[in-house]
Amino acid sequence: MSADAAGRDDPFRASRWARVAWIALAVYVVYASSRMEISWERVVTGLENASRFFARMFPPNFERWELLLKGLLESLEIAVLSSAFGILLALPVGLAAARNLMPAWATWPARFVIVACRSFHPVIVAILFVKAVGFGALAGILALTVASIGFIGKLFTEAIEEISDKQVEAVRATGAPFASVLAFGVLPQVFSRFIGFSTYQLDSNLRNSTMVGIVGAGGIGGTLFAAFQRFDYDFVCAILIAIISLIMVGEVMATGVRKVFLEGATLADLFSRSGRAVRVRPLEGD
């Protein structure tokens, strides 16, 4: 680092590597945007399309509310069932993958299952299940169950690997069998984090359950996609409003569950306006 005029180092001077990285980034942006086929003409027609598009979206059309409600309910069912199955199945898998409790012959297969479940987007998994079990909610439930196993399994494993050994050793020293070591030494230490990522996963499944319908796996997504393709933009707008409100209700309920289990809130606390605000630590994704 060179000295400035006053003979002191400039602490805010960018390092050589940082400058190289910035230049590389700029070159990449220019190169990648040149492949996007962006032209002035396209922007102008795009803006015209956009104004027509939004003009047709408003006012939202709730005439086919029965179809809308049916789709929303199916999405909700997919989210609830896939979260329930996913959490139940993720518990043993996550436990088997924890290196501090299990031998290598158990952790490697369990870790492989978790990586395999995590690597594909739920919509791609849904495509495969649509082929396997046909169109409908079942494919969506299975796809989101797989996604839940991957996500909760990974975080549950990490949580177990971070626990303190002292309590586990203390329970073991009393001659407790393995099941008791788990129930009294391990699970109490990870319970609060488990609640955190389970509610988070429910929230995430709710979001994705409104989307898997695009590939035919049930829920409101199919209705949305069909409305888009038929240019029923006012119905699209109604569906979007419904989806967003469903997701927001889901978020409020997830926060409520966290308050009850993690902060010991009573029902009165939940419904009082002055209730303590929960600052929830962001997990993966959002």
């Binding site: 069912e77 609830v80 069932l81 079990v133 046909g134 079942l138 439930i141």
Partner: peptide
């Protein structure tokens, strides 16, 4: 959810 979800059991067997 279990009671109302529309699942065709034949598809699951298949």
């Amino acid at each position: 959810a279990i009671r109302s979800v529309e699942v065709i059991p034949e598809f699951l067997v298949d």
